[in-house]
């Protein structure tokens, strides 16, 4: 995204909005991760506390979920950078 045409005051506004969305994005990721790992790891409802096996599964699931998101994020960023530099080469 190109914010170069914006005044400093506008850029500060944009920064604030971007930070807010990043935080909302973090919360949304948190919610999805919990749902996914709960669905994957918890299948026994004969007790109301997590078994140590379930707890371990949740820990591994959370780590893997984040590793996955980070890998997608890294590849996605590379891809967007390629698209951008491709456009510059064409237009400049």
């Amino acid at each position: 995204m190109d914010f170069s045409g914006l005044s400093p005051a506008e850029q500060a506004q944009v920064t604030k909005i971007v930070e807010k969305r990043q935080f909302q994005g973090f919360l949304s990721m948190y919610g999805k991760l919990v749902e996914k790992c709960f669905q994957t790891c918890v299948n026994d409802f004969t007790s109301k506390s997590l078994s140590s096996k379930e707890d371990q599964c949740v820990n591994n699931c959370a780590a893997k979920f984040m590793a996955h998101s980070e890998r997608v994020s890294a590849r996605f960023a590379e891809m967007n950078a390629d698209v951008m530099s491709g456009q510059k080469n064409v237009s400049g």
Binding site: Y30, L33, V34, C37, F38, C41, V42, F45, T46, S47, K48, S49, L50, E54, D55, V58, N59, A62, A63
Partner: peptide, 18 residues
């Protein structure tokens, strides 16, 4: 009832990890 308790526990455990 147990599902709510366990979901809450997973939420707390993941929050701690994050």
């Amino acid at each position: 009832d147990r599902c709510v308790a366990k979901y809450h526990a997973v939420y707390a455990a993941v929050g701690e990890k994050l």
